[in-house]
Simulated scan of single mutants.
Amino acid sequence: MTHPLPPPTAHIQIDHFSAVHLAAQTARSLAQQCSLPGALPEQAAVIAAELGSNLAKHATNGALFLQPLPLGDGVEILAVDRGPGMSELQRCLTDGYSTTSTLGIGLGAVSRIATHFTIRTETGTGTFACARLCPPGPETPDSQGVGAVCLPADGEETSGDACAIFDTPGGHTAIVIDGLGHGHPAAEAAQRALRSFSSMPDHPLPEILHNIHRALRRTRGAAVGLLRLHAGQAEYCGVGNIRTLTLASQQVHHRLTGQPGIVGLNIPTLQVRDIPLEPGATAVLHTDGIDHRWAQAPSPFLLRLPAPLLAGALAHGNRLTRDDATVLAATTPQRLP
Rank of each mutant, 00 (worst) to 15 (best):
V239N: 03
G225W: 00
G232E: 13
L194S: 06
L209T: 12
G240C: 01
T219F: 00
P204F: 11
P201L: 00
E207D: 15
A187W: 01
A187H: 15
H203N: 12
R220A: 01
R220C: 03
L180P: 00
D178K: 08
L226P: 01
A234Y: 06
R228D: 02
S249F: 08
M200Y: 07
A187K: 04
L247T: 05
A193Q: 04
N211Q: 15
G179R: 05
A223H: 09
S196H: 02
C237R: 06
I242R: 01
G238N: 05
Q250N: 14
A186L: 07
L245E: 12
L209W: 09
L194V: 05
H210P: 08
H230I: 13
I212S: 02
A189E: 08
I212W: 05
A223Y: 06
S199M: 11
L205T: 13
L227V: 09
A215I: 08
S199R: 10
L180R: 06
H210V: 10
F197I: 04
R195I: 13
R243C: 13
Y236M: 07
H184L: 09
D202Y: 09
P185W: 13
A223C: 07
L216P: 10
G221F: 04
Q191P: 00
H182I: 04
S249Y: 11
L209S: 10
A187P: 02
H213W: 07
P201Q: 07
V239S: 00
